[in-house]
Simulated scan of single mutants.
Amino acid sequence: MVFQETLESRKANPNIVSLLAALLFCSLILQNTQLSTAPAYAIIALTYVCISIAFLWYTPQITIARNWLTPIFVAFVVIVFVRTALDPALSNVVRFFVLLTFTTANLFILPQLISFRKFCNVGSRISAVLVVIGFLPYLGFSFTIGFIDVSLWGSSIYWYPDLKPMMSVFINPNQLGGLTLFATIASIREWTGDGTSIALPLIALNFIGLALSNYRTGWVAFGAAVAIFIVYLLWGRRALLLATIGGLSGLMIALFMMFGVIPGPEFLTEISLNGRRALWIDSVTALRGRLLLGHGFQGVISIVGNPHNSYLRMFTAFGLIGGFLYLVFVIGATVDGARRATTTSGVVLAMLLVAFAVVQVNNQLSFVGISMRSTIIAIILGYSITTDFKTDFPQFKMDL
């Protein structure tokens, strides 16, 4: 079910909306620090309680809008429920509960309360502050305050081996990379849409953070997002749609060539993908053992571990049916976002959708979960699903 509020019902206090957005980002960031798991999740749960209360308080008039992706999501939930019922291990039950609550809120509730503009602006600023903090170890100021450890990762940056990757307050540079990937693209919305003086510094800071995080998947995803943005500037919305479809199709064809499903250049079959090829083969082998309903979330962990591919993870966990529904939902929302992009905000949303669709090829991150990156992916998908594109993104023109 998609909740589509009317403009008349959108009376949320701008300061409260900003506070909730900031609280959301901070709570998601905390779980990726050295803070213990229990208090981190408790803070996240409290944040969502506040968001739910605010949603119910500020949206007294709710109408139901039809969207072809909604039944796809419902069908996916049904498959996950059936698989969980067949193997009601605690970890599977917990993940199904997360799907019903946090993920559903990210897709259908939170985008109705916090406008896309507000989400981008708040997230890009928080990310930029973390990048500034992350610079301190390069200047010789590594430190630990409670559960916050500001230091560098113990390896080398691929494009400059003399430097170590930036982590800022995170326990892993990939977490910073995922946040700065979102924030860099989100800052483009403010630069092209609002034209504020702080927009370019935000883009620069967040891009530097992405570059120093050593998050290679993020680099590729950012390149894909920038490519469709350039296509839009040069040739317009139709070209943007064709570029999105062509890019995703080309990526899928390349993957099929890598595994010999279809004929292709021999060098593609020799790419190791930093060890991912073996994990992907293991995932496909496990799927063949249970084609219909898969092995469940816990089964994937037990058999494959981290498959480093969200789509394969869902196919292995929920079989051909569940995996196909997941794939259709993500790719459908991405293509639909590109098809209906008619404003600056719409184009930037399409960029984010493409970026996170690409990220999921090399990461096991999905829109299901309460991790920072999974939550951001789900919320971005939510904006694509719940936004009424026919009214040209009216909420983005409101000063919230």
Rank of each mutant, 00 (worst) to 15 (best):
F259I: 13
T192L: 15
L176D: 02
W219I: 09
I188P: 06
L241W: 03
V220H: 01
L202K: 05
T244G: 06
I198T: 12
E270P: 00
P173S: 11
A224L: 10
L251Y: 08
S151M: 01
V231H: 01
R238F: 15
G247V: 09
E266Q: 15
I148T: 09
S151C: 03
S142L: 05
D149T: 15
I230D: 03
W235D: 08
R238Q: 13
P161T: 08
I245N: 01
Y158I: 06
I185Y: 07
G223M: 09
Y160R: 05
G178W: 10
S156A: 14
L255E: 10
L248A: 06
M258P: 07
G195S: 11
L179K: 09
F259V: 14
I245S: 08
L163V: 04
V261N: 06
F141H: 13
F182K: 02
G236V: 08
G209F: 05
S155L: 00
G146S: 09
I198D: 14
S249D: 00
V261H: 03
L268M: 14
T269K: 15
F229W: 15
P165L: 01
N206P: 08
T244I: 02
I148N: 02
T269C: 04
G236W: 04
A204C: 12
E190A: 12
I262G: 07
A224R: 00
I148E: 05
I271K: 13
G264A: 11
N172A: 09
V231L: 04
F259H: 13
D149G: 10
V226H: 02
M257A: 12
G250S: 03
G264T: 06
S168G: 05
F170K: 01
L268W: 05
A254P: 01
I253C: 07
N214G: 02
G264P: 03
S168A: 14
Q175V: 15
F259K: 00
L205N: 10
W159P: 04
T196E: 15
L273H: 03
I171T: 14
I230K: 05
P165R: 00
I145P: 01
M166A: 06
L181E: 11
G218N: 04
V261I: 15
I145Y: 14
G195V: 06
S156N: 13
T144I: 11
G154F: 00
Y215L: 02
G154Q: 06
I245F: 09
S142R: 10
S197I: 12
A227N: 07
E270W: 03
S187H: 10
V261E: 09
L210Q: 02
T192I: 12
L176T: 05
G209Y: 08
G246C: 02
L233R: 15
S156L: 00
L200P: 11
I262D: 08
A199I: 12
A225K: 05
W159N: 07
S249R: 00
G195K: 14
I230S: 07
L139M: 14
